[in-house]
Structure formats: structure tokens, C-alpha cells
Nucleic acid binder design. Sequence first.
DNA 1: TTTACATTTCAATGGCTCTTGAAATAAACA
DNA 2: TGTTTATTTCAAGAGCCATTGAAATGTAAA
Lengths: 103, 103
Amino acid sequence: MGEDEAARLFHALSNADRLSIIRRLVVAGPQGLSAGDIAQGLGASASRASFHLAALAEAGFIHRQRQSRSLRYTVDYSSIAALVSFLTHDCCRDSPELRACRL
Amino acid sequence: MGEDEAARLFHALSNADRLSIIRRLVVAGPQGLSAGDIAQGLGASASRASFHLAALAEAGFIHRQRQSRSLRYTVDYSSIAALVSFLTHDCCRDSPELRACRL
DNA sequence: TTTACATTTCAATGGCTCTTGAAATAAACA
DNA sequence: TGTTTATTTCAAGAGCCATTGAAATGTAAA
């Protein structure tokens, strides 16, 4: 992953609503959540939730699937793993200093 | 770390120049690099480099120290470790699905 | 004590991001 | 078919971000 791509992914995570969405989808597990559930959980309007869902989906952090009238969103763990990998391997070059402060 | 704080840190990383700065500082090691070295390496104007250095410093990813006429910048690994920890522990709740796709 | 060097700060500009509410799309049901 | 439900898309506006070049700050050297 190059720096431009990584920057694009970090931008997708640079918003509290979007981080909250990811966390809710992690908690929800494999069955995910509908757009409406997410908007309600966030206390946001439908269009605001949709805007952030679109940003996350475009970056590959979540996927969606229609289920009758609802759209069901789920988290994509591999995209998060890729970002962790970028930070530790690419960016910090597996530096011992980083390891040393693993929490 | 809360979602607002995490979002703030992700925003600091959401730019290719800033990611490039961190990488250069990792490569440079404990003695770091001067602002001028960084601007030159980036192919950016002094003020542009300074702008991005200020954003990274404000977020705690780098530190600076005056050394004669230059300002020497170094990377702060603990801030990066904290972000990795946020992604894996807080955001993904140490989910086995995340582990499963560790690269 | 001027002069040069290293870096930041400032002001202006263009572009992007987020929010809101209204309109459009899509699916299910009566 | 017409209506309700679920969600996205669109347009407009406010605010933030990044870039540029000029001016200001701080430090060392002549």
C-alpha cells in the first residue's frame, strides 16, 4: 500500500461518526446492522448516516447487502488489518521501538 | 482513547506528505532530521513542510528540539502504538476475525 | 552589529468536507 | 396499482484544509 492510498484510508477513519459506525458493526457481529439502525444509534439523520456509510464503503472498511427493504452493513476486518500492517510494517518498518511500547 | 481523539489522530495521518515525513523520521533513527532536510526530501517548500510538521507535532506523532540553527524532529513511537492499540483493542475488540487476517 | 541562515507565521486563495432538508430510488405490501 | 417503508442522492451553505509567497523570528557567524 502506497502513501496516497494509506492517506485515503486514514481520512476515512478521521471522523468520530465513522469510527462509531465501525465499532457498532464490530459489536453487531456477522449479521451486521441496517442503515436505519446505524442512524438511530448515532442519533444522526438518515442522510448524514448514509454519507458516512458511503465514505466507509468507498474505502473498503464496510460492505453492504440488500435484505428486503433494508440495507445491511457489515465490517471488513481485512481492511483494518491492512492498515495496522501499514502502520507497523511499512511506516515503522517493524521497529523494535514500536514493539517496545505495545500496549 | 475516545472516538473524537482517535479521529483527530487519524486526521493527522490522512495526508501523504505527513505519512512520508513519519517514514523518513523512522528511517533517520534517533538523531532525526532537520526541518530543512525534510522539506528537501519531500520536494516541498519550507512553509509547506512546516505546516505538516506542525500538524504531526500537535497530534503527538513527532517531537522537535532546537539544535543550533536547525530544528531537529524525531518520531514518537508510543503515539503510533496507541493508534494501533485503538484499532485492534478498542475498535475491533480484539476480534478473532481481525487476528485471522493479520498479514 | 550587520549579515546570512533556518524555520515559522501570516494572509489570501481554492478546494474539499460535513450537515441539512428535500427529492429521488427501491422494495414490499394492501 | 397506489401507498408505505428504507435508504440514497442532490443542492446549497458553512467551515476546515492545503498551498503559496512574503514577512517575522530566532540563531550563529563575519
